[in-house]
Design a protein around this nucleic acid. Structure first.
Lengths: 204, 204
DNA sequence: CATTAATATAGAACGCGTGCTAAATAAAAT
DNA sequence: ATTTTATTTAGCACGCGTTCTATATTAATG
């Protein structure tokens, strides 16, 4: 198999470097000016390439935004970890984590939009919006907290999934349907916990 | 107070008529071709007015989309009612309603996006996205179903709100984070119910 | 009539995401 | 140096939501 003539494809490291360069700049813009400020044209200008070049490295805008998730999720995760430091009792830990989780998304609508609402629902393309392992880890944390309370393995995943989606739902409702007189966020979160971990969980 | 000269403001009925004419056409487009097909320019063309005229009657696109909610919610509501017809036991009724509710949004991503994700989260403008009474009624239904099970009045609203936001959260997660291996939808919904109505609810 | 105020209009503009094409450039083999 | 191939580029295009301005048009008053 002789090497073909012509310019060889970019090395994988080059590709990764370019991608991360773009993603990094996108993050900088997002951090400084929020969701709406991140546009393909501007991003290209700040990266120093033509707008079309970005499309050679990413599927589209959604594919770039995905890289901002990690930053937001890490921020959220660290906020939760901070609150958890001085708490030992498993039930209280889960409770604090859940309350902090919901509060985070309610208090940061832009972050919520980025992670949970910037998906192009139209596309059923499976390859878009992959949850990489790093991203998953931040949700896994809840699984651990639940596990400390529930022993039954099979229930842990179901409970955790329900808890997470339920919490995200609370945040979504608070973010989008603002004028409906929702029950106090803490109370809703608490109620959600109660049902998720019903057998063992005791209300504070 | 003498009447001022010049053309008088449009009568309220005229304004309402024009608004409903635009909203009606928007609904027609949405029904026929879905979310993405509804655009201001096209809507204006089909209504037979200039694009700018619409902005004299609506705050913006989000203000128009709001009018499509009613249609979708009515559709969802009737689907639930249909399923409820032959069920008498309160717990089973609530269970069926919840399952149908979640399934509806999971099966109709476009509808979900319209109602729960087309909000401009950036705006903290309270006047945008008002839940009118007709719209609220469709959610009120769940309050009634919960009431049939729980007697404590104060718990009914908290339980219902938690249930609704939780169900919406399940739908959101299924719609947006597709590649995460979520627990079976029915199971999550069931688990959500269990915690919401924990004291009385019995698993099937 | 003319005047006046409310409304509707056309038309341009801005920036957006994204696709297409044709030209330029870069890096290898010959 | 020339050829060959990969990549990037510029530039145009489409339709989008939205804002602005200037120009009708409409319906009341005097």
């Amino acid at each position: 198999m002789a090497k073909t003539a012509g310019r060889p494809p970019r090395s994988e490291s080059d590709i990764a470097e370019y991608r991360s360069k773009i993603a990094k700049q996108a993050l900088a813009i997002y951090r400084a000016e929020g969701f709406d400020a991140v546009s393909m044209r501007r991003l290209a200008k700040e990266v120093g390439c033509a707008p079309m070049t970005i499309y050679a490295h990413f599927e589209g805008k959604h594919d770039i935004l995905r890289y901002l998730w990690a930053d937001v999720l890490a921020d959220m995760s660290s906020e939760i970890q901070g609150k958890l430091e001085r708490i030992d009792a498993p039930a209280e830990r889960l409770q604090m984590a859940a309350q902090t989780f919901v509060s985070y998304w309610v208090d940061h609508p832009d972050h919520f939009r980025l992670v949970f609402m910037s998906n192009d629902v139209t596309r059923s393309d499976v390859s878009t919006f992959v949850m990489d392992e790093e991203t998953l880890a931040h949700f896994q944390m809840f699984s651990d907290l639940v596990q400390d309370i529930l022993q039954n393995e099979s229930n842990v995943k179901a409970s955790t999934d329900t808890l997470i989606s339920g919490m995200i739902g609370i945040a979504l409702c608070l973010n989008t349907i603002r004028d409906y007189p929702w029950t106090d966020v803490k109370m809703m979160t608490d109620r959600l916990l109660r049902s998720t971990i019903s057998p063992v969980y005791t209300a504070p």
